[in-house]
Each structure stands twice: as structure tokens, then as C-alpha cells.
Amino acid sequence: MNFFRLLGDLSHLASIFILLHKIQTTRSCRGISFKTQALYVAVFVTRYLDLFFRYVSLYNSVMKLFFIASSCYILYLMKYKYRPTHDPSIDTFRIEYLLGPCFVLSLIFNYKFSFSEILWSFSIFLEAVAILPQLFMLQRTGEAETITTHYLAALGVYRALYIPNWIYRYFTEGLVDPIAVTAGIVQTGLYLDFFYVYFTKVLQGQKFELPA
């Protein structure tokens, strides 16, 4: 564990609490992509299968359980409790275009051709692009509630912080995880446009609005 990874994980935790806070206080999941949230459930379930056969640390296990449970709970809130506030007509990204290629990539790029390792690779690739339905939705509506943008920023910062973590680990432990690093750089890259608007507008106290 190092400072960057810890900060990244905390940022990930924060993003989930911000999202829950947004849903509970506005009693609405308007502006949140159900598809992206469903993809995160798939990401966590496929990646954290090793809960059953590999123990890393208490921290690691507790975080894994939290991410699985919270992502399922968010899905429940969107699907049942606040269902009328979700508008599927603007959440139209075709996730087949993400699931298919990620699966094929995981068959090609993995550390061992075994069930759990292929699913692990799949989850890494899928996480990298899982935000696309959400960003696509943002693009369509052209604006977002401020709290939603804080959620997205925390989520983006999480993977961005993993990049210095990997650099640090390379120098201190000689460890390189090419699959996670490549996917992580792609994932962070997808946020660049969003970050630009977030830093130049939202953090200056303006509303998140994309130029028409």
C-alpha cells in the first residue's frame, strides 16, 4: 500500500458516497446512467471472485465487499425505489459494443488462461470503458447537476491516482501490471474532456454546461 493507491481508493469510496447522497437527498437518479451503474456491478462481481479463494488483507476484503454491495444497492435504488426518476430514453448507449470487445480482449490478454484470470482481465477492460454510457448521456443532455459532476470527478480521480501508484510500485517493488496500466491510462483518458469542463466551470462555481 502506498499513498497514491490509498488516496485513489478513498476517492473511489468518496465517489460512491457522493452518488448515494445525491440520490437520497434529491430523491432522484436523474442524470445518472443506469447502464454505467450496471456495468460497475459486472466489473466488481467478475473482479472480486477471488474473495472466495485468495486473501490479501482485511482492508482489501472489506473494500471489495463494500464495492460489490454498494453498487448492487445503487442498482436497486435506480431500478425500484426511484424508478420513475430514471429516463431510459436518454440512456441509449449500446453496451453490447463494450461487453463484446472487452470479452474478446480478455481472452487474448490475460495472465493465465483460466476462468478467474480471464474474468479478472475482462473486469479491468470493462471498468476502463464503463463510464462511456454516463458520459454519452451527459453529452446528450448537455448539462449536469453539480453533485453529479462531483461524483464523476471523484470517480475519475480514483483511477488517475492509480497511475502514480503504478510508477511508484515500479520503482519500489519492480512490479508492472501491463493489463491494469494500459486499461487504467485509457480509463483516465476518457475523463479528460470532462475534467476540463469540471475544472474550468464547476470548480469556479458555474453550472456544468457543455457548449451547444
Binding site: H12, R54, K112, W120, L175
Partner: peptide, 10 residues
């Protein structure tokens, strides 16, 4: 290889 040492990141 990584598979043997396990994935210790989230």
C-alpha cells in the same frame, strides 16, 4: 508472474 503473486489492487 502477476497471476502467482495475485492481484492485490482494487
Amino acid at each position: 508472474p502477476l497471476e502467482e503473486q495475485g492481484h492485490d489492487e482494487l
